[in-house]
Amino acid sequence: MEGNTNLQASTFGLLWWHLLCSSGIPTAFWVAHRFQSVNLISTPHRTLLVLWVIQCPFVILLSSFFRINPRDCSYLKAVGRGVLGLFAGALVFALGAISLGAPVGSTYMLGTINWSLLMSLLTVSPAAAIFGSSWVDWKRIFAHTRPAGSVDFMVCLPAHGSIVGAWFGAWPMPLDWERPWQEWPICVTYGALVGYLIGMVASLVLGFFSRRKPYIKAD
């Protein structure tokens, strides 16, 4: 396989990345509740805004440390492409959500935009910050789903987790339970976040395992 396979990160960095990125979500919920007094069910678009705005520095700033060939590419550049990836990915996610049946209309527009920014932040941004325009890596992670190395896991698993989680999160929507959270994009967001956290745990575990192996071989 071509590309930068078996990218490894230090144990310390790995731990901090996972810990901080995961803690961004509860922090955001807390902030939304404490300072904005909104929650996902009552005003989804505001809460989503808070979510992605607070999660944004965590993900982009931390991921940029793991950028490939750091000698050629400055830290700021990595942050810049992470931000660029955030907006480009949001466009793709918005289109994807609409194509899968998300409602189009002024009432849902803000919700859709903020949701896609959040999704993009969880999936595309870290990849953009780390891989930049190295399309071979993108293809390996997203088209083939063949992560190798702890950095690959770190990009791949949470991203796939949140996409699959969002997909499953859409299932309760047509049911006639008449619960407020069945509205777009509330339960989809819940699904995505649950998937993201599961992906985080999985990537942390697998990341450590993939790190240990070379050492064993070296011994």
């Binding site: 899968l100 049946g101 293809k139 088209a143 006639d176």
Partner: peptide, 29 residues
Amino acid sequence: SMVEEEQYIWHFLTATLFWIIIRKVMKSL
């Protein structure tokens, strides 16, 4: 209620299949 709202299932799954095909095309890009 899923029987009543079956149209959502068909559309959702068909559209997802299209996205999976897009991913497949990307794979051979």
